[in-house]
Write a protein that binds this DNA or RNA. Structure first.
Lengths: 152, 152
DNA sequence: CGTTAATGATACCATTTGAGTATCATTTGT
DNA sequence: ACAAATGATACTCAAATGGTATCATTAACG
């Protein structure tokens, strides 16, 4: 039972990496080198992020990817929705009709409640909140070396 | 992303059903009829619950299964542990060595925290708490019909 | 222009896990 | 002895995850 999959995790890293760079755009090649993610896989992920509107891409030489909105507005839940196609923890194993007792299922109610909590917390996690949103207030406090990504 | 799988859910229903009966033991056949779970599948689940010590079984004619401890002490987390072999939501996708930055991974920390919350809540759910633990205080408050399982 | 460095679009493959089936052996009450 | 039960085990099937491969398209630059 994993809360996030590799897709989601890689996407998070890539987005954080882009956020840290102050460039117009960051190429897949650069991210492969920096993040040690298999190239074809990362490319696929970046393409998905593009088509989903989280990244803008520019083709051709010198091209690459850039965030299409501010890091504060890119949430972990966005990525989960994209790569894990649902965010429901509950997904009653009895699809619709089958369960005779769907409305007063005690277990379902409990899990629904837990799900609400989890969602609330997940919605608080963004690219920015993971420490690379270059908030003026927090960024690189006087140290001159670039710090490593804090997304493991 | 499901919090519980069908195995776990079926096991929960079966255990609740047994808890509701006041018999010495309940046979698989009876539960198949009552819970509409495919027979071989339920049998496998019951066998697992037996071998894991949650049920005591008696073979031969008139045999069946009985809870091996009180409903209050059979937790949802027990079942998750048995049928989903881990309860970790985090399971950093980078197994051990691979992740260069495991100790100060911001994402991991966030998810760890969420996991602790979820666990705390899950540990509050037992066979008894799902409404079929025949607590003297709550059971069948004056009504003479047996109420349906509240596990959907 | 033509080359080269980039992304876009697709199609494919391998492994794992979840969900369920099938079969035979063993035990035990009548 | 027989029937009704569980024990043990091996197998199948489908979906999801994780990843690869290939060709097409675009655009800067010399």
């Amino acid at each position: 039972m994993k809360l996030i999959t590799r897709n989601t995790d890689y996407a998070m890293r890539a987005l954080c990496h882009i956020a840290k760079q102050r460039k117009e755009s960051v190429s897949a090649a650069e991210m492969v080198a920096a993040l040690k993610i298999p190239r074809p896989f990362l490319r696929k992920i970046l393409q998905t992020l593009s088509s989903e509107g989280l990244l803008r891409s520019t083709k051709g030489q010198g091209g690459g990817f850039a965030l299409s909105r501010s890091p504060q507005k890119i949430l972990l839940t966005d990525l989960i929705r994209i790569f894990q196609n649902t965010i429901q923890l509950n997904e009653c194993v009895f699809k619709k009709k089958l369960c005779p007792n769907r409305n007063n299922c005690a277990l379902k109610k409990e899990i629904d409640a837990i799900e609400q909590d989890v969602l609330k917390r997940l919605r608080g996690i963004s690219i920015a909140s993971l420490g690379n949103g270059h908030h003026p207030a927090r960024s690189n406090q006087g140290k001159c070396h670039v710090h490593h990504s804090s997304v493991c």
